[in-house]
């Protein structure tokens, strides 16, 4: 387990199975035309470079901060939404 996963393991989430609240619009774009800052800016490491040079996005550990949306805004390649009401991160302390 990587260090950030150990951190996220402490958190409480209500997962909305099958309903990712963030989606990469055009996965091919990430492979060729982007420096992929999402892979090192996301505080929950939701974005991981895959073997094909693209990005695998897993929103389960998302802290709903909004960083990825901001760094991707010029490329406009993310569909970013909040999870459905009540789902997602539920901070015990915040």
């Amino acid at each position: 387990m990587s260090k950030v996963e150990e951190k996220l393991f402490q958190n409480r989430y209500l997962l909305d199975e099958g309903n990712a609240h963030i989606r990469i619009k055009n996965p091919d774009f990430c492979k060729t035309s982007c420096a992929q800052p999402c892979t090192f800016c996301c505080p929950a490491a939701c974005y991981v470079k895959n073997e094909e040079g693209g990005i695998d996005l897993t929103t389960d550990g998302c802290l709903e901060c909004g960083t990825c949306r901001i760094i991707c805004k010029d490329n406009n390649n993310l569909e970013w939404d909040y999870p459905r009401g009540g789902f997602g991160i539920s901070f015990k302390f915040g």
Partner: peptide, 25 residues
């Protein structure tokens, strides 16, 4: 993690239990 490992900071947290990790803008 670097901040937590800083020699001036580390002793302040020694023996603590981390119970939540968060991020916000």
């Amino acid at each position: 993690d670097e901040l937590k490992a800083h020699p001036s900071v580390k002793p302040l947290l020694a023996g603590s239990e981390m119970k939540e990790y968060s991020a916000h803008l």
